[in-house]
Design a protein around this nucleic acid. Sequence first.
DNA 1: GGCTATTGGTTGCATCGACAACCAATGTAA
DNA 2: TTACATTGGTTGTCGATGCAACCAATAGCC
Lengths: 162, 162
Amino acid sequence: MPLPRTRKKSTGRAAVEKLSLQDFTPYKLAVVANRLSQSIGSLFEQRFGIQIPEWRILMALHSYGPLAPNEVVEITSMDKGRVSRAQRRLVELELVTASGDPRDGRRLVLFLTRKGTSMCEAIIPEARQTESWFLSVLSERERQTLDKALSRLLARSQELRL
Amino acid sequence: MPLPRTRKKSTGRAAVEKLSLQDFTPYKLAVVANRLSQSIGSLFEQRFGIQIPEWRILMALHSYGPLAPNEVVEITSMDKGRVSRAQRRLVELELVTASGDPRDGRRLVLFLTRKGTSMCEAIIPEARQTESWFLSVLSERERQTLDKALSRLLARSQELRL
DNA sequence: GGCTATTGGTTGCATCGACAACCAATGTAA
DNA sequence: TTACATTGGTTGTCGATGCAACCAATAGCC
């Protein structure tokens, strides 16, 4: 039987292809990333009492040394407000100290405390382990390609914020 | 000067490697996925008045035909509640109709309306376009590898929900 | 049939994140 | 110096999400 011709103000061309979510990269990315975040998040939560925003700040400080919240925002791709609140929690937990810059009354500098440093050293191996468990379904080559692709897409995604 | 030996209850082994967020796959995934979702989300919002949950349902119905919310949950990786609310919005917008299954008073079946179908046909090309703009920083090979990797990771991520 | 367990779906609740308004301090220019 | 603009950071708000409690209907079992 003849297909019911989809009436449309269209150019009279063929119908639009179906788009399966499963083949739509943004969908896959979102789902994978969400599940992974949640999983890592709850791991951190249970084992260390911190969440992802805190984790990101800790890692930033651990890698780069003392930073202004300002810079943390850049490095961690987080919102001002999110950083501000996470930072407060870290200070409460005594993992980080925030001291004011005497030269500039607005600026703060965040330091890892000793406790914060050892927390980092405790978490990092677990994080790596989770990561590699997760990635272990990929071959070495695939992992590299994925990594490179993600880096490129990370850059690309900066151009999005319009 | 001698490095301050990090005291730890450690095995006396070397200090933990630093972990740069930029090299941590879950971080990259999260950031890329978030930015992309937001971007696509606001595109859909402005141009079509729907959001991502609605979009996912539309695509599911467009690909698979009428479905129970039940099945939509499976296909779209969304929460019951999220589906339920998004579905309501879609009905309000008259893009979808929900009718009860006479054989089973609990079950619903969701259909695309004509309006819903043409909305799909309008959105899909834009979605594809955004996707390919985004992916255009990758070579064809990379894209394929990425796609395969994400599919595998999607499966892997199912095992996470503990 | 009657009673409990299960399934499908909705609603309530607590939390989180994005965005914007806001406040304080510095920089700049008359 | 005195405005005014800009920068750094905090706080308030609103909507979205994930989870769980809940309600309705069916299935399974005695």
